[in-house]
Design a protein around this nucleic acid. Sequence first.
DNA 1: TCTGGGGTCCTAGGACCC
DNA 2: TCTGGGGTCCTAGGACCC
Length: 428
Amino acid sequence: MAPMPRLALVDCNNFFCSCERVFNPALNGKPVVVLSNNDGCIISRSEEAKALGIPMGAPLHEQQEVIRKYDVRVFSSNYTLYGDMSARVMSILRDEMPAIEVYSIDEAFLRLPSDFTEEHARALRAKVLQWTGIPVCIGIATTKLLAKLANRHAKKNKALTGGVFDLPNSRDPDGIMAATPSDGLWGVGKNLAHRLKGMGVTTALEFKQADPAPIRKSLGVVGERLLRELNGIPCLELEEMPPDRKGVMASRSFGSAVESVEELEEALANHVARAGEKIRRFGLLATRMEVFLRTNRFRKDERQYSPGIGITLERPTHSTAELMTSARALLHRIYRPGYRYKKTGVYLANLVSEDEYQPGLFDRPRNAGIDVDRIVDEINRRLGDPKNPVITRASQGTDRSGKGWKMRSQRHSPHYTTDWRELPVVRI
DNA sequence: TCTGGGGTCCTAGGACCC
DNA sequence: TCTGGGGTCCTAGGACCC
């Protein structure tokens, strides 16, 4: 039998708070919290702050009393700093280990060499702390889900584990799993936990030992994957190359609610500019845009309206002016007077690389009066294989977002595609 | 009164085609 | 010409994560 693959999850402790401490050691031993973008919520807490009972994600205003009473140090978030610290931590991990997947700003999965022991993990932990000032915990197991679980145990029992825990080589893995509630598992939120409870499953161990059929039936493929991972059958691969980004979002809440379309337009212009700048920086063009509005979901006494709308853009673009024209049009399609709006945002999706994109005929899907048969002939002629035409049909179709061209290609051709962006460019 | 922002993946269902 | 089942694509919305 091949040896089981071994993975580790490295997770920075209270990452944002730890970053603040690196640059201000006077904060050591004091309760510290870091706030979300609008200084609305608490998104990172030092151990001391957790001990005071300050919950994750708590609105700041609910915690003012505790903060005053215990002199909690409060920071607005500084993502430039955190991004920089993250890069330092990741570069150490990358230098030390053969394969790493940066999973988030403060977490990375590592593929471990077969001779990698818990002692090596402790040395790695010490090195990251010494070189960056950031404390981390390391969980070791055979699948990503179990590595997450091992990490959770390492972190929750730091005095015992010293921040490193090797689940398969521990004395009582089942005991650890029995002590882990199912909603403490990675990928199990409120909803799945509730459904599991309905099946009598409340711990990771019960989940691991559950009958797969009802899990599959009630929790779908997501549940089945979790079950397999719990049993040491990897379903989630280490992704060393992050896949291309699917979309870019820019949104903000308003300090106080907004009613007029003019104010919404102004905010949206800001978001469009930020999102546009971001895709330009990545050398991308958006082919789809979505705009949404939200009323204040916490105000049960107010009428709720949270519409969103999306369109395929006339042509792929990253121009702020072009994006803004579309965004404004979308906003006006969903805006209704008489509501108190709390948030708006824009999502740029179906991104294509600027380098690969060539402007051409297919930019203008709604351009009526094009001779479709000529386009089909022209594409097939240029590809020069009459026996194996790329395009067999082009038709004008409809969908929710309006009229559009549908170009269908020969299914069994090596050029088969249903994506017009992949088709050759033809000018007529 | 105040209660974040930015992502991914999955499913259901409509439209359309063969 | 009519028909149903299956396939593909797309979108909306839910669930979850950090």
